[in-house]
Write a protein that binds this DNA or RNA. Structure first.
Lengths: 337, 337
DNA sequence: CTGAAAGCGCTTACAG
DNA sequence: CTGAAAGCGCTTACAG
């Protein structure tokens, strides 16, 4: 006798369906799948039998026969980090919706083993595709696409190969949305407080802002105040800005920490926000507070979970388009602007 | 001819290994797996051949033969929520480490389909186990264990069946850790600001606090101030507390929002924190700020990601223990206490 | 349009 | 200790 572990006595097999429908196994299979070159009547009879018996095809047998695992490999770097976390959640939730399992390899694993070893394992598992989750696009990741015969999609990561399919948040659009929002509300004297220009996100957000100002024929209340991503820089830069006596009615901050710092300075000085001065940040990191019904900041949400979902849908799709794809952020209005 | 999709011409099969080792297919299989009733010499020869050919067993064929998918079903409710998110990340990362794929079903799906339909799909996939991710243990989830023949583990959820295996954060210990920390630092006049006593987490944290006070022979600077989880209640309650003229040198707040509100009031009144008054919260929700090197609060971290990892390891384990299991929180010291 | 048969690549009960 | 053979439950090229 052969293995009995694979057996599941209570389970309905396709052969049972075929018997009930009075057709052969192969006809039953074709009727349930492509349905091509099978008479409508037969298809109906087989489907009915399958329905009546509550037939669920054994996914293991199907995968084996087809050589497709309905499993997607997911390679991450520090997946638990603040920004990569939502991306990973989006990836696994969307894959689940698409009936695909996720086989996740975290970097912890990769440093201990050879990278080639984990790739071999991924191949042994016959994954149908691979998603590489980065940690923003500050660092360019080396392309791994040539190591796989299955589709590879990069998300929250840039690669060194132009034909790779990458998904990134649209940081330039984030700058545009924030600035447009302020302009639409009648602000004309807008300043910018942000982090280090070494960061690509900083440069892109600033560029988006500049585009909108140009289109509106406005001048930045300059210079751009570059510093760090931390709240205390927001405090310091806002203090400097106000002390400089600049005529300013709005500030676009590169992230929400800076915006909170700026808000704090304005409140301490008795300036009304947004009446005297409007403030917009980026990240919507107040998620936890928003959950609880309190929101202080206007901000731009980069939709990181949607970014993960989009990449997951892509790796399964048949019409994949090479190159860089940007996911649109959304403006989340709040009382500060 | 049969299906050719399953073929992968470049791939080494077990039969190749057997041929190179000069043994039969069955002997090769046994040598590589159990190794029982096979001579050491043969085992060595087969292993060597496998090594040399870089043999990776086809996981699809293996799963099919054994009836085990190396895939774990994961059922979530609002997985993207603030607290369930880290639990889910812990689950999928740990499963990945254990070479298990994750097949995630989010509630969005479940409301549209019959729950029985998703269970049938999970069964058709021959999952080796199921993890149910809840959203805290405020609501008791109905047990689903009887619907599956594979191991079911609940995490961040309580069920209505005592034999179910559940993993929860230890909220009582969170209250103890916070209070013990304050007592060890010489505080003797400790108050408690927290949310609604309807919440089990509120009651457990308060109970843990009371235990520690009792053991130290201290009295709570009462009454417990029950309210909401929001920062403005922290502000209000702290204001009341100070206005009441109570002699207080520390406050344990039920979460970090309340602690931030309390901190704000103290700072506004010129009280030095922690010199005049020490404050401890719960949640370590400043994660994002911590990433950036700034920390204001002392807090208790419930280790939600570790909670997810622990549950994931459990569902695979052979020695599973029925009942409720608690994951220990850790105190994260900061300048506020 | 339909069906008999081979095949996907393993595991294991059984005979030797 | 070893090997020939059956079996896991599907899919599909081929013949009819």
């Amino acid at each position: 006798m052969a293995s009995s572990q694979g057996k599941d006595p209570g389970r309905v097999r396709l052969s049972d369906v075929a018997a009930v429908a009075g057709v052969s196994l192969s006809t039953a299979s074709k009727a349930l799948n492509d349905g091509e070159r099978i008479s409508e009547e037969t298809v109906a009879r087989v489907r009915e039998a399958a329905e009546r018996l509550d037939f669920q095809p054994n996914a293991l047998a199907r995968s084996f026969a087809l050589g497709r695992s309905r499993t997607i490999g997911v390679l991450t770097h520090r997946a638990a980090s603040t920004f990569a976390g939502p991306v990973l959640i989006g990836v696994v939730l969307e894959l689940g919706t698409l009936q695909q399992a996720s086989l996740v390899y975290d970097e912890n694993l990769l440093v201990h083993r050879e990278i080639t070893s984990s790739i071999r394992e991924l191949r042994a598992r016959h994954i149908d595709g691979l998603i590489v989750v980065g940690d923003g696009h500050e660092h360019v990741s080396p392309s791994m696409s040539h190591l796989f015969t299955v589709p590879v999609t990069y998300v929250f990561a840039a690669t060194d190969r132009a034909e790779d399919i990458t998904y990134l948040p649209d940081n330039e659009m984030a700058g545009r949305l924030a600035t447009r929002h302020l302009i639409e509300r009648g602000r004309t004297r807008i300043a910018h407080i942000t982090s280090d220009p070494e960061s690509l996100a900083v440069r892109l957000r600033a560029r988006g802002m500049q585009h909108e100002l140009d289109e509106a024929g406005l001048q930045l209340v300059g210079p751009v105040r570059y510093g760090t991503w931390f709240q205390n820089w927001g405090v310091e830069a806002m203090t400097e800005l106000l002390d400089s006596g600049a005529d300013v009615d709005a500030v676009f901050c590169g992230n929400d920490h800076l915006a909170l710092g700026a808000l704090q300075v304005c409140e301490a000085r008795g300036l009304r926000v947004p009446d005297d001065i409007a403030i917009v940040g980026v990240d919507n990191w107040e998620g936890i507070i928003l959950d609880q019904g309190v929101r202080r900041l206007t901000t731009v949400d980069l939709r990181l979970q949607m970014l993960g979902r989009t990449a997951a849908a892509d790796v399964i799709a048949t019409n994949r388009v090479p190159g860089e794809h940007l996911v649109e952020p959304v403006l989340v209005p709040g009382p500060s602007s």
